[in-house]
Design a protein around this nucleic acid. Structure first.
Lengths: 156, 156
DNA sequence: TATTGTTATACTCTATAACTATA
DNA sequence: TATAGTTATAGAGTATAACAATA
């Protein structure tokens, strides 16, 4: 999300946290650009790539919308475009005929695999971390994510 | 950027990196939602908030576009809307009259301060890290960001 | 000639509200 | 009544191309 000029607190602990927040936003901006560039290399928008990467074997559209944090009405158009290009199909859920399930086609699965590999292999800065540093980062991110989910569930 | 299903390599080092990439994308999605929610609380889109947070004392529009990784033609509209609401003004650069400089107004500076504080104080999961963990995270992120910038400069 | 910012255009994402079909 | 998905609509972000003013 680019450079943010967050006011620095005087308390050293809070100041360190503020610095982490700023670094995170800077790195997030790079990740966003990286993701968009990988998607664009396959003529997909970031949104279309997100939907494709989230697809399981039989994903209800509502779950896609919830995971992506947007209104379900948006998903219709995104899925339309992916379907027109042959990357997924819709089917009715036999258990609840209101629900439509999304399935990646063979071409969709191949594309997903390719995008996944590109996302991983060209991850900015990742190759410079040692094995131990990668493990440290994994643990710290786990804590951040776990707590975020907890808060999300509590407030929802 | 939501849940990404990145194929897991068999090599344990590569697998650990892939896990970090997946965690990063998950946390990034939470940060994006956090940023949007803070911006929306002040009737700003994420893009408008990014521009406002990036504004220095006299920022050329071209620099804003470069920092945000988008075409300069987009900035015109975003800046128009922020200007209409009294958060910034344009002025001609006396040294190069093609350039227009952006200045946050008093209201813009107040809003920037408030958004910065909200971004920092409600940062998902950040409050759960110990002082030492915050320091570790800062160092790891510094490495990731430093290398990203280096690559960016090398390729540009 | 090259660059800065603007405008026009077309496409996509976005939320809201109204609608159909189903539960 | 409530829910899943669609459609219509309006507003915003996005890149491309053409343009005026300036360098």
């Amino acid at each position: 999300m680019g450079v943010c000029r967050i006011p620095k607190p005087k308390d050293p602990i809070a100041a360190a946290r503020a610095e982490v927040v700023e670094l995170l936003f800077s790195y997030v901006e790079r990740l966003r650009a990286h993701f968009e560039s990988v998607a664009a290399a396959h003529d997909l928008t970031a949104m279309q790539a997100k939907v494709l990467m989230f697809l399981g074997d039989a994903e209800p559209m509502r779950c896609v919308a919830e995971n992506l944090g947007c209104d379900p009405s948006n998903i219709t158009g995104v899925v339309d475009r992916l379907q027109d290009r042959g990357f997924l199909t819709r089917s009715e859920d036999p258990n609840d005929r209101r629900v439509k399930l999304l399935h990646a086609t063979a071409a969709g699965k191949r594309l997903r695999e390719t995008i996944g590999l590109n996302l991983f292999r060209e991850m900015p800065g990742m190759g410079e971390l040692s094995r131990a540093q990668v493990a440290d980062l994994r643990n710290l991110l786990s804590m951040l994510c776990a707590h975020s989910v907890e808060k999300q569930l509590a407030s929802g």
